[in-house]
Amino acid sequence: MTTNTPIAAKEERQERLDRGIKVRTEGLYALTSWREMSYLLAPRALLIFGLLFLPLLMDPYWQRVVCVAAVYALLALSFDFLAEYVGLVCLGGAFFIGCGGYISGLLNHHLGWSPFITIPIATIAGAMVSTLILLPCLRLRGVYFAIVSFMFPMLTVNIIVALNVFGGTEGISALATLPNIWFDQYIVIAVLIIALFVMRRLVNEDIGLIFRSIKDNDQAVRASGISITLYKIKAVFIAALMGCFGGAYMSHQYGWVGISLFAMDFSILPIAATVMGGGGTLVGPVLGALLLTPLSEALRGFGQLRVVLYCLILMGFIVYKPEGMMNYLQRKYHQFEHWRKV
């Protein structure tokens, strides 16, 4: 009995409960008061207005960074979607960027089409090309798919250099650029916001349900009479759309396409952003990318050492906070904790 007393003294546990307002705002009741509505709208509004006001606060140099960060955010979003909702760990971000960029650049260079036509065409055509090329690997899962998708950008670069097509190592320059820097920024931010909210909706629709079950147990999905290849194709296409838009946009933003569009950064940074932001939250990776890209820009003075920094951040988050930023914040926002006697 003597052992029991010290234990009895600390017989408390921390209880975690959903806030009342969270439970209420899950249903129609959310519409009954401003308080409830603002609970729902505040985080979303914060994100949207934060993104919209971002360019106004920046000087011209950092405005360029905003553009690049938004492209990375799109890539991170597509990575998170594929990895956390479909179970395809796709390291082919650079491939999507490259496909979109080259298609748009070639159309503009050879046919002289305006960016307003080439970007949409490149987005869709690039996504189709990427999906077609990834098609034979779709039966792979986990690390195998990651390896194969990681190799495609390198493969393409070497083809371009070896055959000296599409401008070879020099790329294609003097492409039409977008009207001005404001347009540059707002078009990509608008696409980012739309893509984010569309994806959030999509993963909770029926099709998202199928995606998630493919990740969980693809045999059971097959047993339900659903072709998992078809749905993986759809998923890769959706993800590639975002990446290819980023590529096409970048080619016109710089007025140049080259093999650096296939740079490894485009494949790696989205992973870092996803780990940092919190996988599976969709908004987390976007924020992660929006934080990491400027950070790497600010550290440009360190040269290659900034890669070391990425790695340190990545390692820090994996070891100490594997759930990521957004999962943590969401929990704090929706739930409260208190100690309770047992």
Partner: peptide, 20 residues
């Protein structure tokens, strides 16, 4: 805990061969 998933709480005592 690492995943940020559900929290598991264990309370009480288990004594095995005289040791908690």
């Amino acid at each position: 805990e690492m995943k940020g998933g559900e929290r598991i709480t264990v309370l009480g005592s288990i004594t095995f061969a005289g040791e908690d």
